[in-house]
C-alpha cells in the first residue's frame, strides 16, 4: 500500500478513488492510532504505578509478546479451520488476551525480587516468546505465503486496519479505560505502599491483579490488530508526569491518553513521509523517537 497524495478539496469528491482512500483506508488507521495510543499509554501508566517500577509497560513486561504469540495462534487456528474474517476478529483478541495473561503471570512469578528483576524476567520471557512467534510465523508464511495479516502483526503497524477492527478495539477499550480512570485514587494508594493501600480499604493484591488483567486486555486488543508497537507505553506516562510535574494518576492517566494518541498520530504521519512512496511500520518510528526521549529522561532525572 503505497503513498497517495489526496488533494484537500477532493476528500468529498464524488469520484470514488479518493473517498475510498480517505474514508476506508486512512480514517480507520487514524482511529486505530488514537485507540492504540490511548491503550498503550494508559497501560504503561497503570503498570508503572502498581509495580512501582518506572520501566514497567506492556512491551518490557513481556505482555505484548505473549499477546502477539496468542494472536498468531489465533490466526493459525483461523487459517487451519478456514474460518472467515469475522471469526478472526473474535478469536484473535481472545487468544491474544490469554497469551498476554500467561506471559505476565510468568513474569510476575519470576520477577519478584525488585524492579530490576521484573524487567529482566520480562525481557527473558519476551525473547522466548519471540522465538515461538518466529517459528510459528515462518510456518504460517510457508503454508500461506500470501497472508498479509501475518506480516502486519509482526511489524507493528496500523496499515490495513479496517472499520470493523476499530469497532472491536473500541468496544473493549472504552469501558476498560473508563474503569481505570475511575480507579485513579486506588491506583495512587498502591503506588505509595501495599500496607497503606490495605489500611485505606484497598486490598493491594486483589486490586493489582484486576488492574494488571485490564492492562492485559488493552494490550491484547491492540496487539491483535496492530502488532507490537514499542515504547509508547513506556515513554508517554513519563513525558506526561514530567510535563505536569505530578505522579497523581487522576491527572497522569487522562493526559497520557491524549499524549499517547497524539504520539501515535504523528508517528503515523512520519511513517508515511519518511521515505516517499513507502509506508514504514509505525513501531520503527515510535522506537526511533521513543528511545532517545527515554534516554534524555533518564539523564534529566539524575541531574535533578
Amino acid at each position: 500500500m503505497g503513498e497517495v497524495i489526496v488533494p484537500l478539496g477532493m476528500v468529498f469528491d464524488p469520484a470514488q478513488t479518493y473517498r475510498v482512500i480517505i474514508l476506508d483506508i486512512r480514517l480507520p488507521e487514524v482511529i486505530a492510532c488514537i485507540i492504540v495510543g490511548a491503550n498503550l499509554a494508559v497501560s504503561g501508566a497503570v503498570m508503572q504505578s502498581v509495580f512501582r517500577n518506572p520501566l514497567a509497560e506492556p512491551y518490557i513486561t513481556g505482555t505484548a509478546s505473549g499477546a502477539l504469540l496468542g494472536a498468531l495462534i489465533g490466526l493459525f487456528i483461523n487459517v487451519v479451520l478456514r474460518l472467515g474474517s469475522l471469526s478472526s476478529m473474535i478469536i484473535l483478541p481472545i487468544l491474544s488476551f490469554v497469551g498476554a495473561m500467561f506471559s505476565i503471570a510468568v513474569v510476575v512469578m519470576f520477577g519478584r525480587g525488585g524492579w530490576l528483576s521484573l524487567v529482566l524476567a520480562g525481557i527473558a520471557v519476551s525473547i522466548m516468546l519471540s522465538s515461538a512467534v518466529m517459528i510459528l510465523d515462518t510456518y504460517l508464511l510457508t503454508i500461506l505465503p500470501t497472508l498479509p495479516a501475518v506480516v502486519y502483526l509482526l511489524f507493528g503497524t496500523v496499515s490495513g486496519v479496517n472499520w470493523s477492527e476499530d469497532l472491536v478495539m473500541l468496544c473493549v477499550s472504552l469501558p476498560v479505560i473508563a474503569y481505570l480512570l475511575s480507579s485513579s485514587r486506588e491506583i495512587n494508594l498502591i503506588m505509595m505502599s501495599d500496607e497503606v493501600a490495605q489500611a485505606s480499604g484497598v486490598n493491594p493484591g486483589q486490586t493489582r491483579n484486576v488492574l494488571i488483567t485490564l492492562t492485559g486486555l488493552l494490550t491484547a486488543v491492540s496487539v491483535s490488530f496492530t502488532g507490537i508497537i514499542g515504547f509508547v507505553g513506556l515513554v508517554t506516562p513519563h513525558i506526561t508526569r514530567l510535563l505536569i510535574s505530578s505522579s497523581d494518576n487522576s491527572k497522569v492517566m487522562p493526559l497520557s491518553i491524549i499524549s499517547g494518541s497524539t504520539i501515535m498520530l504523528y508517528a503515523n504521519i512520519i511513517s508515511k513521509v519518511l521515505v516517499p512512496g513507502v509506508v514504514m511500520p509505525i513501531t520503527a518510528i515510535t522506537s526511533l523517537f521513543g528511545v532517545p526521549i527515554l534516554l534524555i529522561l533518564l539523564r534529566g532525572g539524575r541531574n535533578e
Binding site: 512501582r52 518506572p54 495512587n188 503506588m191 505509595m192 505502599s193 500496607e195 497503606v196 490495605q198 489500611a199 485505606s200 480499604g201 484497598v202 486490598n203 508526569r241 510535574s245 505530578s246 505522579s247 497523581d248
Partner: peptide
C-alpha cells in the same frame, strides 16, 4: 478490608520514593 479505614490508619516509615506527589 473495605471497612478498615473506619478503625485504623497505617503510616509506613517511607513510601515509594520515585513519585512526584
Amino acid at each position: 478490608v473495605s471497612n478498615l479505614p473506619k478503625y485504623v490508619s497505617y503510616s509506613p516509615t517511607e513510601i515509594y520514593s520515585q513519585l512526584s506527589l
